[in-house]
């Protein structure tokens, strides 16, 4: 189905079109949410919120942008807000006194043989990514886990391609700096 046709149907409240949109984007949005929030449970809640936001604000979508970029932007903004709220809640609940850095809990894998190593390396990278600044982390998650091109990231974050390049360059430098000490015992 053409994007325009899909948007038209979404605006008229067509439930089939909405289901199609969900089928197409659910995995991508869930993936982003897991990477940002480091928790599958929270990611599930976030996905629900994001799809409700999409449903209620589809009328405000300007058709000069791509639907994919718009959906990614909503998802990233939602995750960043959720993360800030979570950080604030953790600060006031004093959890940060007892907890270390957030890492992705309970990685799922169909193959038990490689799951342990994958889990370990993923959690090391995730921990290092969590230590990056918000801007760098956003660009890196979209690039690394979503496989978006620089142009697509620029559209999602509403910045220039040069700015994306710069953010990713700095993010990778920073990530490298954080990863190397963590890999000493690896």
């Amino acid at each position: 189905m053409q994007e325009r046709e899909l948007i038209k149907k979404l605006r008229s409240g067509d439930e089939q079109a909405y289901k199609r949109l969900f089928d197409f984007y659910a995995d991508r949005i869930y993936n982003i949410c897991v990477r940002f929030l480091n928790s599958r449970q929270e990611a599930e809640d976030a996905v629900q919120d994001i799809f409700c936001k999409i449903y209620f604000s589809i009328d405000r979508f300007r058709e000069d942008a791509r639907l994919t970029s718009w959906i990614y932007r909503i998802s990233v903004n939602h995750c960043l807000n959720a993360q800030r709220q979570k950080r604030r809640a953790r600060f006031f609940s004093l959890d940060w006194l007892s907890e270390g850095e957030m890492t992705l809990k309970s990685a799922r894998s169909d193959d038990p043989q490689d799951s342990l190593e994958k889990k370990e390396t993923e959690s090391i990278i995730q921990a290092a990514i969590n230590g990056l600044s918000e801007k760098q982390r956003t660009a890196l998650v979209l690039f690394r886990y979503e496989g978006l091109t620089y142009q697509e990231i620029a559209e999602v974050l509403n910045i220039s391609v040069a700015a994306v390049e710069s953010r990713l360059f700095q993010a990778k430098q920073e990530l490298c700096k954080k990863l190397l000490p963590l890999l000493k015992d690896f």
């Binding site: 949005i29 990278i125 890999l183």
Partner: peptide, 13 residues
């Protein structure tokens, strides 16, 4: 440890 984006495991809903 760090493989490019094409090697990253994607989470599915």
């Amino acid at each position: 440890v760090y493989k490019g984006p094409q090697h990253c495991r994607r989470e599915s809903a």
